[in-house]
Amino acid sequence: MVIAESITENLVRQWLDAVKDPEIPVISIRDLGILYDVKVGGDEVVVFILPTYSGCPAMDTLRQDIVDVLKQHGLEQVRVQLKNSPPWTTDRISERGRQQLHDYGIAPPQDKKGQPIACPQCGSSHTICISQFGSTACKALYRCEDCLEPFDYFKCHV
């Protein structure tokens, strides 16, 4: 079935705002910067995704979530294609995405090297790294020395 002209690439992008990262369900794939491109042509929609870490186990769920969301809007032929180039970096996370991470209790990646990593609970920059490897591939484990709470830090990946 040929896709109606009213369905533009921009519209599909807006619909895809409903697709969140399966492991951090507050940030959309657009704000995380992994939604690279959308192509609408002929009878299919192709969604290009830049995976974060190469072993990210959330990719299959994400693929299914994209297909499901677009199906709700009547799109039957959806192909999700993973791309390794350009490589995804944390610079691709939007300002809104950084705020969403923070509000969810995850410290967003550093803007500049050497900048202290602030505790997302109390705001103190008196924090220490417990392990570079956290609950998912993209996060490190930190602890706040003031409020003593442990927290996840979204690792800088450039």
């Binding site: 870490y53 190469s54 072993g55 390794n84 490897f133 591939a137």
Partner: peptide, 20 residues
């Protein structure tokens, strides 16, 4: 615990490289 998580995180990255 932290080291258990680190070892398996590295394993996962390597599995990702193998897959690609």
């Amino acid at each position: 615990l932290e080291e258990d998580i680190a070892l398996t995180n590295v394993a996962l990255d390597l599995l990702g490289h193998a897959k690609l």
